[in-house]
Every structure is written in structure tokens, then in C-alpha cells.
């Protein structure tokens, strides 16, 4: 995902991050269709500045919600966007939603240790993501295999 023009006061990766999250959501299938869906941004996020409410291609509404970094706060979330959190906390949070049909995306997981389904990787001029197949298979969700072709490396 090439970087777009940075918005005033945001990071260079904000636009790309928002588009990547939307793209991943387009190719994810939840066990139950819900409308509207809850996109929970957990903890302090660095690149989630442009991640607002939007409408998916099939018409479902997506609402953004900032939540605290604890397990109890994740109730009702369809997508968990992990912000700048420590790896143990990230693992704790992903373990809490495992098997419940919740899409997990980690913003700050360079070592791929968070056990989130998707993790951002940063290149100088673009943003891409890795896919943790183990996490996907245990998530209770389905991800279109064509996304594998777009993902860079991963487990």
C-alpha cells in the first residue's frame, strides 16, 4: 500500500493504514453478519488518525471506538486494532478474543509476536502487512486466501 499525501498533524502512514484496515476487512468473513460493526482501537495508536467511521463495499456501516487496553473493554468489538502496546499485553488481548470471530490487527508488532492475525510492516515509501496463518485459523473467522498473495511474509 503506497503512502498517500500525509495529512496535517498526522503520520505519513495514517492514510495507508486506514486503507489497509478497510481492505483487510473486505476480505474477512465474520461468523455472523452484523451491521453496524464495531472497530475498536485499543490503547494509544500512532497511525489510526484517519481510521474513522466508513461504509463497506456491501453497505455495512463501520463505527470506530477507542477502548482501554484491557480484556473487559473488548466486549462487542468486531475488529480489534492494537495500538502502541507491549507484546505481553498484546498477547493477552489477542488470547482473549481468540475463537470468537474477532479480527485482530497489530500496529506495533515488528517481531510478529503479538499473535494478532495481521501485523503492519513499514517500508520507507509504503505500508504492508504480514499474516499470521496460525492466528487466522484459530480466530473463528475466514479470510479470503487471495489476501495471502498480497501479504508480505508472516508465519
Amino acid at each position: 500500500m503506497p503512502l498517500g499525501a500525509p495529512s496535517a498533524g498526522g503520520t505519513a502512514y495514517e492514510g495507508a493504514a486506514a486503507r489497509t484496515v478497510r481492505g483487510i476487512m473486505e476480505y474477512a468473513r465474520w461468523p455472523q453478519r452484523r451491521d453496524p460493526m464495531q472497530l475498536c482501537v485499543v490503547g494509544p495508536a500512532l497511525h489510526a488518525g484517519q481510521l474513522g467511521a466508513f461504509r463497506m463495499a456491501d453497505g455495512r456501516q463501520v463505527q470506530r471506538r477507542n477502548v482501554a487496553a484491557n480484556v473487559a473493554a473488548l466486549v462487542g468489538c468486531d475488529v480489534v486494532y492494537l495500538g502502541q502496546l507491549g507484546v505481553p499485553l498484546q498477547r493477552q488481548l489477542t488470547a482473549a478474543v481468540r475463537g470468537r470471530g474477532v479480527l485482530t490487527i497489530a500496529e506495533a508488532d515488528p517481531a510478529n509476536a503479538s499473535e494478532a492475525m495481521f501485523a503492519f510492516t513499514y517500508q520507507p515509501r509504503s505500508l504492508s502487512f504480514r499474516l499470521n496463518i496460525d492466528a487466522v485459523s484459530r480466530s473463528g473467522m475466514k479470510v479470503d486466501p487471495r489476501v495471502l498473495r498480497v501479504a508480505k511474509g508472516g508465519l
Binding site: M1, P2, R19, T20, G23, E26, Y27, S128, D144, R146, V147, R149, V150
Partner: peptide, 14 residues
Amino acid sequence: YTVEPAVVFQDRQA
């Protein structure tokens, strides 16, 4: 069909 996600993610190499 194959290139649809790559187009969505705007990844020309993909």
C-alpha cells in the same frame, strides 16, 4: 478474480 485484493491494497507488484 486473482488480482482483486492486490488492486484493493494498491500493490502493483502483487
